[in-house]
Amino acid sequence: MVEPLSKAFDNNVWFWKIFAVWIQEVGNKYYKCYAVIFLISLYFLYDGLLVLNLIYTPRHIETFVPELIFFVTEMAVLFKVHLLLFKSKSIQKAFEMLDCETFTGDTEHQIETNKRFKSLYKKYFLIYFWVCQICYVSIVLIPLFIYFINGNELHLPICNYYFLSEENRDNNILSWFSYQAIADYVHMTYNYTVDTFISGLIMMGLAQFKVLNVKLAMIKSSMDKNDLPESKLDAKMHQDLIKCIKHYALLREYCQIIENIFGTSMFFQFGVGVLSNCITLYAFLLPYFESQLIFLTTYASAMTMEIFLPGYLGTLLHYESAEIGRAVYQCDWIERSESFKRSMRLLVERSKTPIELTALKIFPLSVTTFIAIMKTAYSSFTLLRVVHNRESSDYN
Results as ranks from 00 to 15, higher is better:
C132N: 10
C132T: 15
C132F: 01
C132R: 00
Q133E: 09
Q133R: 00
Q133H: 00
Q133A: 07
I134A: 14
I134S: 11
I134K: 05
I134N: 08
I134E: 09
C135Y: 06
C135M: 13
C135D: 09
Y136S: 08
Y136M: 10
Y136L: 11
Y136P: 06
Y136C: 07
V137Y: 00
V137W: 04
V137R: 07
V137A: 06
S138K: 08
S138M: 14
S138T: 02
S138L: 06
I139L: 12
I139K: 10
I139S: 11
V140S: 08
V140T: 14
V140K: 13
V140Y: 02
V140H: 14
L141V: 03
L141C: 02
I142H: 01
I142W: 09
I142S: 01
I142F: 02
I142L: 09
P143D: 04
P143E: 05
L144R: 04
L144I: 03
L144W: 03
L144K: 10
L144C: 04
F145N: 04
F145Q: 12
F145E: 03
F145C: 12
F145K: 06
I146D: 14
I146M: 02
I146Q: 14
Y147G: 02
Y147N: 15
Y147S: 04
Y147K: 03
Y147F: 15
Y147L: 13
F148H: 07
F148C: 06
F148D: 03
F148G: 04
F148P: 07
F148T: 13
F148M: 10
I149Q: 07
I149G: 10
I149M: 08
N150S: 04
N150K: 12
N150P: 08
G151S: 10
G151N: 09
G151F: 02
G151R: 11
G151H: 11
G151D: 05
N152V: 13
N152Y: 07
N152D: 10
E153T: 05
E153A: 09
E153M: 14
E153L: 07
E153Q: 13
E153G: 00
E153H: 13
L154T: 11
H155V: 14
H155S: 13
H155A: 09
H155R: 11
H155N: 14
L156N: 02
L156F: 01
P157I: 09
P157A: 09
P157D: 13
P157F: 09
I158T: 14
I158K: 10
C159R: 08
C159T: 08
C159N: 12
C159G: 08
C159M: 13
C159I: 13
C159A: 11
N160W: 07
Y161D: 04
Y161E: 07
Y161W: 03
Y162G: 08
Y162C: 01
Y162N: 12
Y162M: 11
Y162A: 00
Y162L: 05
F163T: 01
F163D: 02
F163C: 00
F163I: 08
F163Y: 15
F163K: 13
L164D: 05
L164R: 03
L164Y: 08
L164V: 04
S165R: 09
S165Y: 05
S165T: 15
S165D: 13
S165L: 03
E166G: 12
E166L: 08
E167R: 05
E167P: 03
E167D: 10
E167G: 04
E167C: 02
N168Y: 01
N168W: 06
N168H: 07
N168C: 00
N168E: 04
